[in-house]
Design a protein around this nucleic acid. Structure first.
Lengths: 138, 138
DNA sequence: AAGATTTTCTGGAATAGTTCCAGATTCAGA
DNA sequence: TCTGAATCTGGAACTATTCCAGAAAATCTT
């Protein structure tokens, strides 16, 4: 199991958190807190935050931090995918790299930086919200 | 003047803020507050935040919100440039689009969204911090 | 099973950045 | 000069997150 190979002890909390994020990608810490509480009976906020940090550090989770949103987590790590977020409902979708093979890690001018990540977020309005808006306007 | 053509009254505060951001791109609200205070004698935090919001809404400023950083503002709007940020010192540089002509607005799969912005941030370590780190390690 | 270590717990305080309030005042433009 | 826009003061509120510190519990090792 992933936790084991990352050198982490197996605890009910870690398993539940990892599993929750696997089934509900792009969850916030609070989403996770609620899901795990339901599943285990209870968990502390600190345990959730601690675990999310640990799992992110060890590379089992990827943390994404969209503007005006709490951090979100996903288990799809190691590839170069990006995100598409609805400005209205906040829905997050995965998007594969537009130009393929980690192209986004290549800036046109790197200013001498050693770049380790390209964070790409597409912002727009999802079809559902577009439809709802059209309906509301009559 | 830009303020005028955006239909905004000319006030000393707005002029000073716009001017400050022009000369110091990627300023935070607090940077701006301090610079304008020095320039005008005083300004309120609220006026700074109000003005930054107004100018951003009217398209005179672009707001960027890097993770773990307060919002930053710049007057370079309307083009499709991105940002390169040093993880160590927080230095922000402009980067032209890697693939040219607003390519970044094109996701490989738009999921039916109407995309209006592609936010691209390259993360890395700047040459100065790399050098400093090498020196510190001896 | 015991011991050592890791993890989680409670619960409260603190933080940063920003927004909101509400009423008074000042200012720009017509 | 008038009107509405903009700004002011000053304090409270907010969200997401981190930090604290010691106690308790669970996990892994032997």
């Amino acid at each position: 199991m992933a936790l084991r190979s990352a050198g982490l002890n197996l605890t009910a909390q870690r398993i539940a958190i990892l599993d929750t994020v696997t089934h509900r990608p792009h969850s916030t810490a609070d989403d996770i807190y609620r899901a795990v509480t339901e599943r285990l009976g209870s968990i502390s906020h600190q345990a959730v935050y601690d675990t999310l940090s640990t799992l992110s550090e060890r590379g089992l989770l990827r943390r994404i931090q969209p503007s005006h949103s709490p951090a979100r987590f996903e288990t799809r790590v190691g590839d170069n995918h990006h995100h598409l977020i609805c400005r209205t409902c906040g829905d997050v979708r995965d998007v594969d790299c537009a130009v393929h093979h980690t192209p986004c890690l290549t800036a046109s001018d790197d200013h001498g930086f050693s770049i380790d990540e390209a964070e790409v977020i597409y912002w727009g309005i999802c079809p559902t919200c577009t439809a709802a808006d059209a309906t509301a306007r009559g």
